[in-house]
């Protein structure tokens, strides 16, 4: 869906991107990860032509983006930035209607669509539609930013540290909601973060960058299991094991009870990491697993978790 071919970006003598080639498959979430200044934002913005590469080509759906009118190109791509950039003089509803309006949708259609998007991102239109951005919390503003990016139903979504400006609990909630939303929408998402944990949680594939180059481009499991360069190994650091657990569903690790019921419990739908955290918090060696109705269906043992975490 998006293909970067040997993309170079120079500022004077400084190379912000040094020949990046990358392919993002349709419907996937690809996370651009790496230390500050490594070129993530620069690469992201070559897609909607906010930045023009010095060399190389970016293809969107097989088309060289240089051949497209920049405004039309941008109206077809959802764009979310860390600072959100809501328009302060427009109500929440008007903010969400911006792109449909630019696309010339008629009023009733774009308003209905905007209300639907607000509902989708968890903001009750009756409460929020008429508010101005200054009347929103950080998390709410971030949701409006997402609704605005999705309003015209673009196939591609560019997200530059969209959850960077909110507190950790809110960030986690937004991440969960994003995953749920994405499961239904199946957008092609290019997502920038410098937070490894966020990358592992959200990505279908992670593109780890350093100094304007791609160090490794792999699914999170592969990246964690098999770091290809010393830089990748260092970047992942000691949290490897723990992070791998956050990609493993609990489902396959459940065993029948033997003896007494463990005090703590986690839902069956959770990832192995949640069970591990519960174990650490309780200081026990096993934790109960409950189904959607809250009935215990089995247990997960510490040994099992340690085994799958260190498996090659």
């Amino acid at each position: 869906m998006i293909r970067f071919e040997n993309v170079v970006k120079r500022y004077g003598g400084f190379e912000a991107l040094r020949g990046v080639s990358l392919e993002v498959a349709a419907g996937q979430v690809v996370v651009l990860l790496g230390p500050s200044g490594c070129g993530k934002t620069t690469l992201l913005r070559t897609v909607n032509r906010l930045i023009e590469p010095t060399e190389g080509t970016v293809y969107l759906g097989g088309q060289d983006v240089r051949l497209l009118n920049p405004e039309e190109l941008r109206r077809g791509i959802g764009y979310v930035i860390q600072s959100i950039g809501l328009f302060p003089h427009m109500s929440v509803l008007e903010n969400v209607m911006v792109v449909p309006r630019l696309l010339g949708w008629e009023r009733s259609r774009r308003e209905a669509r905007a209300r639907e998007m607000l509902t989708r991102v968890g903001l009750e239109p009756a409460t929020f539609a008429a508010r101005y951005p200054r009347e929103l919390s950080g998390g709410q503003a971030q949701r409006v930013g997402l609704a605005r990016a999705l309003a015209a139903d673009p196939a591609v979504l560019l997200m530059d540290e969209p959850f960077g400006a909110v507190d950790p609990p809110t960030r986690e909630r937004l991440q969960d909601e994003f995953l749920k939303l994405q499961a239904g929408l199946r957008k092609t998402v290019l997502f920038v973060t410098h937070d490894l944990e966020e990358a592992v949680k959200l990505a279908d594939r992670i593109c780890l960058m350093n100094h304007g180059q791609v160090e490794q481009y792999d699914p999170p499991e592969a990246l964690l299991r098999d770091p290809k360069t010393p830089f990748v190994r260092d970047f992942i650091g000691p949290s490897r094991t723990l992070l791998r657990l956050s990609r493993i569903p609990l489902e396959g690790l459940v065993e029948p009870f033997n003896g007494k019921l463990p005090a703590a419990s986690v839902p069956l739908s959770a990832m192995a990491r949640e069970a591990f955290s519960a174990l650490l918090a309780q200081g026990t060696r096993s934790v109960a697993v409950t189904d959607a109705q809250g009935r215990p269906v089995g247990q997960v043992r510490l040994e099992t978790l340690l085994r799958v975490a260190s498996e090659e």
Binding site: E71, G76, Y79, V98, L102
Partner: peptide, 22 residues
């Protein structure tokens, strides 16, 4: 604000539309 300008361009406002509407 710079971020508002960037968002406006990113949404697909042309320079003149951005001037008038933002």
């Amino acid at each position: 604000p710079q971020d508002v300008l960037e968002a406006a361009s990113g949404m697909g406002y042309s320079p003149l539309q951005r001037l008038w509407r933002v």
